[in-house]
Amino acid sequence: MEHREKPLLEKRIAVVTAVKGSLGEGIARRFGREGAVVVAVDADREAAKRCAALITDAGGTAIARGADILAPGEAVRLCREVADELGGLDILVNAGQATTPVAPLRDKDPDNFGRAFREGPLAAILMMQAAYPHLQARGGGRIVNVGSFYGPTANCGVVDAVASDGALAALTRAAGVEWARENILVNFLQAGAPDIPEFHAYRQADRDAVDGLVANLALGRLADPVEDVGGAATFLASDEGCFVVGHTIFADGGQHLAAPAYDPGFKVV
């Protein structure tokens, strides 16, 4: 870690959704280390508590909230309660992502697309709308939408995730333009394949081929959810990102320029 005289997100109030997932958890933990007051949110209340505990155990400040963002009124209630309890809201990270069975498009259950779009873009939209008045009341804020952990170059077998990422990127661009004048900056963060158990399981199927793909990446390694993905999210949420709007940022060590390290449908199709 580089030298720091003080943390980068000191006392900013940050809501991070879907912290049961590796990317949401990594970002929440990094924000905790950067001095933010983190609200760790997940539909699975125990998962939210585990994430908050990781942050507080490391000396940070966090509370947990169990919330089903997609339930009527839930996002509005969540943001209102956070703002009331903590005194405001500065940063929103939407890390929701459906996990659906890997299958080629011709066989994919259309409901998987429904889930992908509800848990990704729709949940993000509901949270953005719910957070908007609170961010506005602070004179601005930051929203980071987070894509799937397949990155932008996986295609086969995960078309629902890929399409959901595309929707998030477009949502981010349009919302970024609409809200920039109010200093509410919306950006899209797409990670490369992260170094997590799901990836290790995937790698077991064909270790040499997968290792070859990882070596093919510009930086030759997988993403660390806290250091790499959390670092890029901090970039977008801190002073550094104060003139970046509607953008897609890859925290992927160059994977957007290369074959994906994690393409779980590759062999299925």
Binding site: E2, A218, F243, G253
Partner: peptide
């Protein structure tokens, strides 16, 4: 402008490479 460049060259930017970053208040869109 320098703030974003600082982000890219500091620890936060360690996994960002090969990218074109618009630091333009949204002009690119």
């Amino acid at each position: 402008i320098a703030g974003a460049i600082l982000g890219l060259v500091s620890e936060n930017g360690r996994f960002i490479t090969g990218q074109v970053l618009n630091v333009d208040g949204g002009l690119w869109a």
